[in-house]
């Protein structure tokens, strides 16, 4: 992966500045905060992820779950009030990652900065990591990829058939000091990327101040992705 020329170099200084990661501690542990109050369920981040990482049809590293009965029925009666919320879901880059534990060949591993990575040249395709992942964010390359266009849109190399892949938090962008493309593209700024190890950083502050929570906390995975619960004062 990552053997393509980055188009980030071609960005205007303003665009580049918009995507910069910013302050961090000496030994950063990358993490993300997703604000459920801001998310409008537009799927922009899911779509740019597909393009950025060259995902074939049928595969999604990042998807938006609707808190409701159906994709297009987010409204839930709560007494007098109605609420609309979404749950954007991709790899949680867990500190206690079940996938890393079970991979028989260490093809799934932790980087020093806490990212859970996948070595597609080593993966034997046993799919045990997909069994172990409580979030269902891993995709298997079942067959020859089908793409909507003959042109390669991805900024990273495509993964081989018969191996598992998932969100990398756009490692290729992190290498150029740019936030993941889902963060960069969110029209409401619902995603904040940063260093969890920096106690005064934006990510840690938001988690503290807004009582951020991790998904499926009870399974003890210690995710790097945190969610901020909605605190809408004026219901719909």
């Amino acid at each position: 992966m990552g053997d393509k020329v980055s188009p980030i170099a071609a960005l205007s200084p303003a665009s580049r500045a918009w995507g910069e990661i910013g302050e961090r501690s000496e030994h950063p542990r990358w993490g993300m905060v997703v604000d459920q109050e801001r998310c409008i369920g537009c799927w922009s981040c899911a779509v740019i992820c597909k393009s950025e990482n060259d995902l074939p049809l049928g595969m999604w590293w990042n998807r938006i779950l609707t808190e409701g009965d159906a994709l297009d029925q987010p409204a839930q009666a709560r007494g007098e009030a109605l609420e609309m919320h979404w749950l954007p879901l991709a790899c949680q880059h867990c500190e206690n990652a079940p996938c890393v534990k079970v991979c028989p060949v260490q093809a799934t591993y932790h980087r020093d900065d806490g990212l859970v990575m996948q070595d597609n040249d080593r993966c034997i395709g046993c799919r045990y990591c997909m069994i172990a992942c409580p979030y269902g964010v891993r995709n298997f390359n079942w067959g020859a990829p089908v793409r909507p266009t003959p042109y390669e849109t991805g900024m990273v190399a495509a993964r081989p058939v018969g191996t598992v892949e998932k969100c990398t938090l756009c490692v290729h962008r992190l290498a150029e000091d740019q936030v993941p493309s889902c963060v960069w593209s969110c029209p409401t700024g619902a995603r904040v990327f940063g260093d969890l190890n920096d106690p005064e950083g934006r990510v840690a502050t938001l988690i503290r101040d807004r009582e951020g929570f991790a998904l499926l906390e009870e399974v003890g995975t210690k995710p790097a992705v945190h969610y901020l619960p909605p605190r809408r004062r004026n219901p719909l």
Binding site: M59, W60, E67, G68, D69, A70, L71, L87, G136, N139
Partner: peptide
Amino acid sequence: LPPGLPVGV
């Protein structure tokens, strides 16, 4: 939660 998991193909 809807829509669920990506099928993969």
